[in-house]
Design a binder for these strands. Structure first.
Length: 317
DNA sequence: TACCATGATTTACT
DNA sequence: AGTAAATCATGGTA
């Protein structure tokens, strides 16, 4: 590796662009200059320092000072949205609360239900996961590339003057490139969240009857706990899981069921009997399967189904 | 299309 | 916060 510091070569070296790779500059030298370069190496150190001075003064690297990165409003919007949706920012609590608030604000629904919608949350978590993985990947790639370029520049600095500002500028360029990739990622993440949200809200507006199986599971629980049809939080969660619905939906179902049963016990008598028999059969089967264990005492299975519901909440008006 | 069933929402209460 | 009760809105069916 050599560098020619004669006047011709210096001009050639600096004029095209400061960022031209050294190899390209050398490649562009005429054969006579190359020959010259080999001959004038004794003056190299002195001239090299002069070059540095000239370069500093001529403002060849002045561009770097002028390129203050403005804050991109679009990027700010994306960042804010991702933060509000709970995709970016803290893992739990603030993020999901913000998402709930956003969903509530957009759909005019109660925040409780928006938080509870397990499907929505699961999908949002999935998006969050992908977003963070990709973001991390980009950051890593950016760091690796920056280090690589810095090493290259450091190597080149032995043969041509490279100011810290130049390095800074190069790093800024790399960061800009990578942040534009990140912006694309943010954009597509935002789109995914919007699609998810619109789907979620549409699904909520359209009432769907629960599956037959889900209704059966809920009814079984209801009639086998007729003396106290108030499932605990844990029971609700389990029922929700079994039925493939949310805890809120389980609560709604029990609320509706209690009031409707209470209003018209006669109408539900047949249904109650069916489920009482079903529960009794299940209990028998279960006890036969696990005779070694202590006998199961399943709630109120098989008992007469004329129970009246205990009164809770406000008294009838 | 009317009617009933049913899930969701709202309001008031404890 | 959890619930009762009333009500709304939609789904399913004869």
């Amino acid at each position: 590796m050599y560098v020619c510091v004669c006047a011709v070569c210096v001009c050639f070296f600096f004029l095209p662009s400061i960022s031209l790779p050294l190899s390209l500059s050398l490649f562009s030298l005429s054969p006579s200059c190359r020959k010259h370069a080999l001959n004038c190496h004794r003056m190299k150190p002195a001239l090299f320092s002069v070059l540095c001075e000239i370069k500093e003064k001529t403002g060849l690297s002045i561009r770097s000072a002028q390129e203050e990165e403005p804050v991109d409003p679009q990027l700010m919007r994306l960042d804010n949205m991702l933060l509000a949706e709970g995709v970016a920012g803290p893992e739990k609590g603030g993020g999901s609360a913000a998402a709930a608030a956003a969903a509530a604000a957009a759909g005019g629904v109660s925040p409780d239900n928006s938080i509870e919608h397990s499907d929505y949350r699961a999908k949002l978590a999935q998006i969050r996961q992908i977003y963070h993985t990709e973001l991390e990947k980009y950051e890593q790639a950016c760091n690796e590339f920056t280090t690589h370029v810095m090493n290259l520049l450091r190597e080149q600095s032995r043969t041509r003057p490279i100011s810290p500002k130049e390095i800074e500028r190069m790093v800024a360029i790399i960061h800009r490139k990578f942040s534009s990739i990140q912006m694309q990622l943010k954009q597509s993440t935002c789109e995914a969240v919007m699609i998810l949200r619109s789907r979620f809200l549409d699904a909520r507006r359209k009432r769907r009857n629960f599956s037959k199986q889900a209704t059966e599971i809920l009814n079984e629980y209801f009639y086998s706990h007729l003396s106290n049809p108030y499932p605990s939080e844990e029971a609700k969660e389990e029922l929700a899981k079994k039925c493939g619905i949310t805890v809120s939906q389980v609560s709604n179902w029990f609320g509706n069921k209690r009031i409707r049963y209470k209003k018209n016990i006669g109408k539900f008598q047949e249904e109650a009997n069916i489920y009482a028999v079903k529960t009794a059969v299940n209990a028998t089967a279960a006890s036969q399967n696990s005779q070694a264990n202590s006998p199961v005492t399943p709630t109120s299975a098989g008992r007469p189904t004329h129970a009246t519901l205990p009164s809770r909440g406000r008294s009838p008006t």
